[in-house]
Every structure is written in structure tokens, then in C-alpha cells.
Amino acid sequence: MTVTLVFLAVMMALFGGWLFSHSINVRPWEAQGASTQRSQLPPAMTAPRVGLAVFLAVATSLFALTISAYLMRQEMGHDWRPLAVPGLLWWNSACLVLGSVALQSAWQAARRDNAARLRRGLLVGGGFTIAFILGQALAWWQLQARGIYLAANPANAFFFLLTALHVLHLLGGLFAWSRSLFRLQRGATPREMLPSVELCALYWHFLLLVWGILFVLLLTT
């Protein structure tokens, strides 16, 4: 649980600090004239961005807990046989990095109102992501073929569980991505697309980071 607790401690420290800055020296019972500030958060923090941030916190909690369970099970049971991570995962990782880069470029294109680059970025990003997912599936199949079954050992089970959770999150992302693409096909301008493309890009970066952590975890334990 250490992993999860560290994550939560960071979250709560950030939140507590922010709240502290809002509550220290505030005397709530004093009425004041209307403030000029229009909304309670800086304008950059739009609802979708805040929403994404909260969702990423939830997803982080999910992954942190799964990793905690991974480490605890490793410690508690006496039957842990480490799994030889398939080499294919390196290629998959490269795909995911490229996908993330492509979506970043799509985001920039949307900001610069460049429809062609936006479309290319989206397509390439999605393509690499699909390649990553197929690659993960292939890695599963390879493991099965080598006789490394899900139920045989907790290390295997966790490998499948962690990669499956990660792929599920990517599939959710691809759903949002396909809607963006659809809207682009229907003739939405890059400016209109900006909010959704930026959310996609940020989400991909997050999942890339998660994958990085998972990959390192799988390689080192």
C-alpha cells in the first residue's frame, strides 16, 4: 500500500496546500462587495480540463492500487516466479511514444489552425495506438504459445491484469479519439476541435507515463 499512500499523500498535500492558501487569513463571516473575478478558478482551468485532471487522479489511484497489490502479493505469497518480459514490448513502447508525439503535434496543429496537420496527427497517433494494442495482444499470444499461462503463476496473472487495465484505458481514449476524428470528417474547424484534441493528447501522455511505470515495474521485478 506504500505506493498508493505516497500517491494519496501527494494528492492531499497539493489539495490541502491549495485550500490552505484560500482559507488562511480569510474571515469567512465578513461580507464583501462583489469581486471582479469572474470565475473561481483561473480562466485556463476550463471544466473539461479540470474534469480530465480529476479523472486522471482516479485512474492514477486505480493503477497505484494495482501496483500496490502487485508488490504486496509478491511479498505475501511464496510462489512468485518472475516472468521474462517479451522483447516485443520494447517495440510496443516505441509505438506508444510515437502515438503520443503525434497527438502532441495534432494539438499544436489545432492551436495553429492547421487542419491538414491536425488530421495527420490524429490519424498517425491513433494508428500507432492501435498498433500498440495489437502488439500487446500479440505479446499475450506469444506468452500463451510459450506455455506461460495466466493461472500458472501470480506474476503472469499480474502481467495480464496490468496490461489489460492499461489497454482498457487506451480503448476508452480511442473512443474519444474516434469521435474527434468523426467530427473532423464532418467538417469541424481545428479551433472547434481544440478542446477535445488537447484532452486526447494529455490523456495519451498520461497513459504513456503509466505504461512507462508499468514497464519498468515488469522489467525490474
Partner: peptide
């Protein structure tokens, strides 16, 4: 906020229990 951060623990637990039940793993 607490529910958002705590429910994933239940989700992980039930996923792992489902694996134990249906796929024969031993979490």
C-alpha cells in the same frame, strides 16, 4: 473526492476476485 480515490480499490479487488473465480488465477 474520497469516493473517487477509494472506489478504485474495490474495483481492483473485484477484478482480481473475478479472475480468481473465472480464469483460475490465484490472487
Amino acid at each position: 473526492v474520497m469516493a473517487l480515490l477509494a472506489f478504485p480499490a474495490l474495483l481492483v479487488a473485484i477484478l482480481m476476485m473475478l479472475c480468481d473465480m473465472l480464469l483460475g488465477t490465484s490472487f
